[in-house]
Design a binder for these strands. Structure first.
Lengths: 250, 250
DNA sequence: CTGCACTTTCCATTCAATGGTACGGGCTCG
DNA sequence: CGAGCCCGTACCATTGAATGGAAAGTGCAG
């Protein structure tokens, strides 16, 4: 044998090691990590030790492996959504104060809404949208708000996904949802994620007219006219867009 | 030439590429990245492309490189401080509501306090403690609260750092600060970071009596009796510790 | 239109990465 | 209490994957 019997590069392996942690799991036994990453134990051990030397992983006594603080720090200091989150935070706090609702901020990644920031209020309804959590575009208000404002070609490619059989959702239904969202200027979904909640989201648009994020709130179904919150959200979204442009210049 | 003329492994290089982004910088030109990482352009290019294939980096048109959303997502879903942050969030929100102050949460990493979560209030004084920001132990209340409650051997090793000449701070001064902090049960610093602010922090202790974090607030110097906030912080800190134990079991 | 600076691709060379094997320590089960 | 097992750690001969100089491609500025 020699370099990689399985035909994968070192980079592939490093990625597999770091990506081997299942969602929400912080500690992994070395042997389990090796198995999950599909690597021989000795190779996994060597890689882990090398990464640990750089603080990208932590190799504790007894072979329990965690992600390293250095990696966390680097990613959070230089993440591509850093400017967005900084721009959005004050406005999200305003919304939370004024409306007393869970607030969240999402970007489009693939065909899913990826939630990059969230403020939840104790006592208000549970917010399923975890930070770093994902939800498919067509079953989240944030996803709809994002997709409904994407360029035509992106939407077309996205809708193409639903042509395949086996899916309960058809392209027509999704197209209709997107059309409504675009026409209204906001997305609204009831009971899809959690049967007892509404969710509403509006697009955040930057100076170049690109929809870069979605700002949303979650509220109990009991709320009779959730649309009443839309103007507040739209105002905040405009503020975020403006602030984002400022940050990108300076 | 062959594998690494400079004697560094592939893992070293991958780490250097990811770590090449200066603080707060999200985009880097490929050539600049190569220089910062100390790599030949073609090697940097190959590594970046490989990492980009896995979503750990984004290689945009024109060779501008960003950290990838996948990496951000992985790190935030599996970070070692995830449980801590989840346990702390509700209590931090309570503090923010009740005291109307900036709240922050830090852990000890090396000889620095690393801020892992923060809630800031519009209109209240600026909070210099950025998420993923660091501050030396002896000039942050969070750092003092953390170090003052570490085991003896850790403190001894830490204090050893100040033996070297050239530093304005002596071991004696720091030892005194730590002693006061330990005796009072909270750390308090005025005007060190920002001349117009106080900062106060209390330790967060888990079920095994280990000090795992520091919970702190920042407030204007005008505040006459900042100590009045201590009981509220301590109550919240105890709550966080208890919640953390629960999360670790379940 | 020319020149420059940067990204991207190519490919022969060669040493760093590989993983089977073996050792050691801790835990469980009979 | 001892045997067996599992898991982390260390070693080292083999070899093909990683390397980087060089050249081609690209886009922008003057």
């Amino acid at each position: 044998m020699a370099n990689s019997a399985s035909g994968d590069s070192v980079v592939d392996r490093v990625v597999r090691v770091i990506a081997a942690f299942p969602e929400g799991v912080a500690v992994l036994q070395l042997s389990e990590l090796a198995e999950r990453a599909g690597l021989p134990l000795s190779s996994a051990h060597r890689l882990v030790r090398q990464l640990a030397e750089h603080g990208f992983l932590d190799l504790g006594a007894g072979g329990n492996v965690r992600l390293g603080m250095r990696l966390w720090e680097l990613v959070n200091r230089n993440s591509p959504t850093l400017a967005l989150r900084q721009a959005a935070m004050p406005f999200m706090e305003d919304i939370q104060q004024v409306l007393s609702r869970n607030v969240n901020l999402a970007v489009l990644d693939g065909w899913e809404a990826l939630f990059v920031e969230r403020l939840s209020r104790r006592g208000s309804v549970a917010n399923r949208a975890r930070v770093a959590g994902r939800m498919p575009v067509h079953i989240s208000s944030a996803g709809l708000a994002l997709m409904a404002n994407q360029p035509r070609d992106v939407q077309a490619e996205y809708l193409g996904q639903f042509s395949d059989p086996g899916g309960k959702v058809t392209a027509g239904v999704v197209r209709q949802l997107l059309a409504e969202t675009a026409q209204q200027g906001y997305a609204q979904l009831a009971g899809v994620v959690d049967p007892d909640t509404w969710s509403i989201a509006v697009p955040v648009v930057d100076g170049k007219r690109r929809t870069v994020a979605a700002l949303g709130v979650v509220l109990p179904l009991a709320e009779t006219r959730p649309q009443a919150l839309v103007p507040a959200l739209q105002t905040a979204a405009r503020g975020i867009g403006r602030q984002l442009d400022k940050l990108r210049e300076g």
